[in-house]
């Protein structure tokens, strides 16, 4: 077998939709990980860059914000957080986490370029509940599907959130 690789959170789900112009299936991926031994909650959000540009500057091909690039506009992250605060939240044990981006990176190429965002929070309390709202891009596309993978220690679950079901609470 070939040497196994740590494929650095490749954007795979996002290239699920191969032809963006066809707008066949609108997807984003959110991965939430809580490891009690590390006492840390990590959120990875992966969004098509075209969709981000459409949401923020009303043009999927307008790269003036240059998110995740060396030339990123000074106001770009603020605009992105403003948008996310309207459509996305995580509540751990009932407390909403303040969105603060730890890192941004781009994966893929062309229309399939994905913007990956990482949020990380120390969490000393035992996790008893997670409430997730992920309605990103439901203002753009009626059929936007936001897949959420939640890994809490050894327990893995998946959810699909969308316009009609934007939020869900998991109890542990």
């Amino acid at each position: 077998m070939e040497a196994r690789k740590r494929a650095a959170l490749c954007l795979v789900l996002l290239v699920y939709c191969v032809d963006l112009q066809a707008h066949a299936l609108r997807l984003s991926l959110c991965q939430i990980e809580y490891a009690s031994e590390k006492q840390q909650l990590t959120i990875e959000l992966r969004l098509f860059l075209m969709d981000v540009n459409e949401a923020l500057v009303f043009d999927p091909d307008n790269n003036e914000l240059a998110l995740g690039q060396p030339s990123e506009a000074p106001h770009a992250e603020g605009m992105l957080l403003d948008y996310l605060n309207r459509f996305f939240y995580i509540k751990a044990n009932g407390k909403q986490l303040t969105l603060k981006i730890e890192s941004k990176r781009l994966n893929g190429e062309g229309d399939n370029t994905a913007l990956g965002l990482t949020f990380r929070y120390p969490s000393q309390e035992k996790l008893t509940s997670l409430e997730i709202k992920n309605a990103v891009f439901t203002d753009l596309f009626f059929d936007q599907s936001n897949v959420v993978y939640v890994h809490v220690d050894d327990d893995s679950r998946s959810l699909m959130l969308n316009k009609s079901t934007p939020a869900h609470k998991l109890i542990y």
Partner: peptide, 12 residues
């Protein structure tokens, strides 16, 4: 969705 290709990723 394809993700990290290690034991933890596989098991998830």
């Amino acid at each position: 969705a394809q993700d990290i290709r290690d034991d933890e990723g596989d098991s998830r």
